[in-house]
Each structure stands twice: as structure tokens, then as C-alpha cells.
Amino acid sequence: MKNVVIINGHPFRESFNASLAYAYKSGVKEAGANVVEIFIGDLTFNPNLQYGYSKRMELEPDLQDAWKTIKQADHLVWIHPVWWGGMPSLMKGFIDRLFLPGMAFSPKENSIWWNKLLTGKTARIITTMDQPGWYYRLVYGRPSINQLKRCTLEFCGITPVEVTTIGIIKTSDNAKREKWLKKAYDLGLALS
């Protein structure tokens, strides 16, 4: 049985991202997998990696719990909006504070290469935006997706990482949103 962790990077609990997370979670439960949700906006932690990598900051209890949950996961689902081409700052801070050397990867001595410490896990990114996904890809090169997929998850050994883009949110009606919620549910259900 798969252990699935849904990580909601939208700081507002009443967002459409929360509805997508709920729909995905419902599909996962229907598939018979275990599922836990991390709502980053509910966590108490300093999102600033204050000393960079030169000095380790102690992880707050919420981050310790989140890391244990992530380590136990077989499949990670990241749900977040695209703001200014990137992810919300709180989500970026969550990654900065947790995906650390010795935890998510470890540099190889006297080498430019590294050990990937999160191998064996898979992931899906579900991202919402106020532009069509094709436009975000062709005009901007998908910076938030590249950052999360290639520069974080795959860098740490998580593969494959599938991507689902959802938009245009600001001009969508209820029928369109229901279609997207059904899509999120079906993605969760497909984990069986």
C-alpha cells in the first residue's frame, strides 16, 4: 500500500488549491492508499535559511514532523499556485529549511556530484495559474515547475515527477472548476 503525502503550498486554507488537495485526497482514499496532508500555511517555522548552509538551524517541531512524514512517503503531491512565475515564498522557505545537505542529498567529497537521499519516491506537481499552461511553458519556460521538479525533487532522487497545470483560475466558472476537481480526484484514484 502506498503512503501518499499531499503538500499544499498555498498559504490560504480557503483557496482553490485546498479544494484540489481535498479532491486528490478523496481519490487516494478511494484507491485504498494511506494519505497525509501537510498544509504549509498551518506550520510554525522560520522560512528564512538564515545562515545558508554554513550553520545548521534547529528544525522547529512542525518541520521535524513534516520531515518524518516526507521520509515515510512513497509518493509526494505538491499543490501550489504560480505567483510571479514562482511558488509562494512560504513554500520556498519550507523547502529551503527541510531539503538540506545530509537530509535530502549529500555532497560527494572532492566532487561536483552528490548523493540523492530521497530515491525510491515518486511525485506529482499540481500547479494553478492565471494563464494557460502552454503560455507559461512557451513564454516563461515554467520556472516554478523547473525549480521544484528538476532543481529540488529530481536533484534529491525523486523520480518520476509528473506535472499537472491548471488554469486560467481567475476567469474560471464553477463548471470548469468542477472539471479540474474531478481531474485531481482521478489522479488520486489512479494511484491504486
Rank of each mutant, 00 (worst) to 15 (best):
F16V: 07
D65H: 12
L43I: 04
I79R: 01
S19L: 12
I158M: 00
G188E: 06
A175N: 11
A31M: 14
Y135G: 13
F12R: 15
T128W: 08
K182C: 01
V82L: 01
S111P: 11
I40K: 05
K121A: 02
R56M: 11
N48D: 13
L189F: 14
A184N: 01
D42V: 03
I7F: 10
V5N: 10
S192C: 09
F39G: 04
V163E: 08
K29I: 14
F39D: 11
G27S: 06
E30N: 12
V36I: 13
S172L: 04
G188T: 11
Y140D: 07
R56A: 15
R142P: 03
V28H: 07
R13W: 15
L181S: 05
L20R: 06
I169E: 04
K71Q: 12
N46L: 12
H10L: 02
K55Y: 05
D42N: 08
Y24N: 06
G188I: 08
Y51A: 11
V28L: 03
F155Q: 05
I38E: 13
W67E: 09
L138F: 15
W114N: 14
L181A: 06
E37Y: 05
A123K: 01
L148W: 10
S172I: 02
Q147D: 12
G41F: 08
P11H: 05
N17D: 13
I38C: 05
G85N: 08
G188P: 03
W180T: 04
K176A: 12
L191E: 01
Y53N: 01
N146Y: 13
N110F: 13
F12S: 15
W134E: 12
K116D: 05
Y136K: 02
G86S: 08
P88I: 04
I70G: 04
I125M: 00
F99N: 07
M87S: 07
T128Q: 09
I158S: 00
V35A: 03
I95E: 02
A21Y: 00
T119H: 11
F99E: 01
P11S: 03
Y185N: 06
L148S: 12
R150V: 13
W114T: 00
E178K: 11
Q64F: 12
P143V: 03
K176V: 14
V35K: 08
P107F: 15
S106Y: 10
F155N: 02
T122Q: 11
S172F: 07
V28D: 01
V36C: 15
D173I: 04
P132G: 14
I166G: 03
T44S: 15
T164K: 14
W83C: 06
M103N: 09
K176G: 09
P61C: 02
P101L: 11
R97G: 00
V36L: 12
K182H: 10
M91I: 02
T127Q: 13
V35Y: 05
W134F: 15
E58T: 13
T69E: 06
M103G: 15
F39L: 14
E162A: 07
W78R: 01
F12D: 15
R137H: 14
I158N: 05
P132D: 09
P143R: 04
G167S: 00
G157V: 09
K176D: 14
P81D: 00
D74S: 10
F94S: 10
K170Y: 08
C156D: 04
V82T: 08
